[in-house]
Simulated assay, not measured.
Amino acid sequence: MANKVYIKDKDGNDLLVATDWSIINGKPNNLATTNQLPTLGAVQRDGITFVNGGYDWDHVNNGYNCAYRIVDMGSFKLVELRMMFACSHDIGGGNMTDKTELIQLPKIIQPDENIESWYPTTSENVYIHVQNNNIGVYTSNGAKLPANTLLSFHMVYFMI
């Protein structure tokens, strides 16, 4: 026969330890409650600006193919950026290296340090180039990106 053990508070009441945190001595005072957990913001596209012939891939339906959302962690934020876009004209094709900026991102999601990323495309020597708040296409060695070619990438980064 098993013995039952009860924990009692200072007034002699039985406690369920997992439910009565107030009696624990030496507990941390900075624990998160459910009201303090990070919150995931809505998908947004406010402030995304297309330049030099760049456009959201879903330009007909005015969709959310180029969008971001922010997770507020309190002292810092996590940004999720997803982009599906194209350019209305050919890029590259000459003997020189070509870099064409197509998208400018809003200040609200500007990283607090220089973030630079390169994403390959299905075309050789054609890359999506992300640097701070600018997104463009980089071609080299005579490579050419035909007009209206779908480009896409997904990126997650931290900011203060």
Rank of each mutant, 00 (worst) to 15 (best):
5 V>R: 03
5 V>H: 06
7 I>N: 08
8 K>P: 00
11 D>A: 08
11 D>I: 03
12 G>A: 12
12 G>S: 12
13 N>L: 13
13 N>F: 13
16 L>V: 09
17 V>L: 14
19 T>V: 00
19 T>Y: 02
19 T>H: 01
22 S>D: 04
22 S>T: 07
23 I>P: 00
24 I>Y: 04
24 I>R: 03
26 G>H: 12
28 P>N: 14
30 N>Q: 06
30 N>P: 01
31 L>Y: 14
31 L>S: 14
31 L>K: 10
31 L>M: 13
33 T>P: 00
34 T>E: 12
36 Q>C: 04
36 Q>I: 04
37 L>K: 14
37 L>I: 15
38 P>M: 07
39 T>K: 07
40 L>A: 15
41 G>S: 09
42 A>R: 07
43 V>R: 13
47 G>W: 12
48 I>A: 09
49 T>R: 10
50 F>Q: 12
53 G>H: 04
54 G>I: 08
55 Y>W: 05
56 D>M: 05
57 W>Y: 14
59 H>N: 13
60 V>N: 12
60 V>H: 04
60 V>T: 15
61 N>I: 10
61 N>K: 13
61 N>P: 04
62 N>V: 11
63 G>K: 12
64 Y>Q: 14
65 N>P: 03
68 Y>H: 06
68 Y>Q: 10
69 R>M: 15
69 R>V: 09
70 I>P: 11
71 V>Q: 07
73 M>E: 14
74 G>D: 08
74 G>A: 05
75 S>E: 09
75 S>F: 03
76 F>M: 11
78 L>P: 00
78 L>W: 01
79 V>T: 11
80 E>H: 14
80 E>S: 14
81 L>G: 11
81 L>V: 09
82 R>P: 01
82 R>L: 13
85 F>K: 12
86 A>R: 06
87 C>P: 01
88 S>P: 03
89 H>C: 01
89 H>D: 02
90 D>P: 06
92 G>K: 02
94 G>L: 05
95 N>D: 07
98 D>E: 15
103 I>K: 00
103 I>D: 07
104 Q>E: 15
104 Q>K: 15
105 L>P: 05
105 L>N: 05
106 P>L: 14
108 I>F: 11
110 Q>D: 09
111 P>Q: 10
111 P>F: 03
112 D>V: 05
113 E>G: 00
113 E>D: 03
114 N>P: 02
115 I>A: 07
115 I>F: 06
117 S>N: 11
121 T>Y: 06
122 T>N: 15
122 T>A: 14
122 T>H: 15
123 S>Q: 06
125 N>T: 10
126 V>E: 09
127 Y>I: 08
127 Y>M: 11
128 I>N: 00
128 I>C: 01
129 H>Y: 03
129 H>C: 00
131 Q>A: 08
132 N>H: 01
133 N>F: 00
136 G>V: 05
138 Y>T: 05
140 S>A: 13
140 S>F: 07
141 N>E: 13
144 K>Y: 05
146 P>A: 06
146 P>T: 02
147 A>F: 04
148 N>W: 09
149 T>V: 02
149 T>Q: 13
150 L>W: 08
153 F>V: 15
153 F>Y: 15
153 F>W: 13
155 M>N: 09
155 M>C: 02
156 V>C: 07
158 F>T: 08
160 I>H: 04
160 I>F: 04
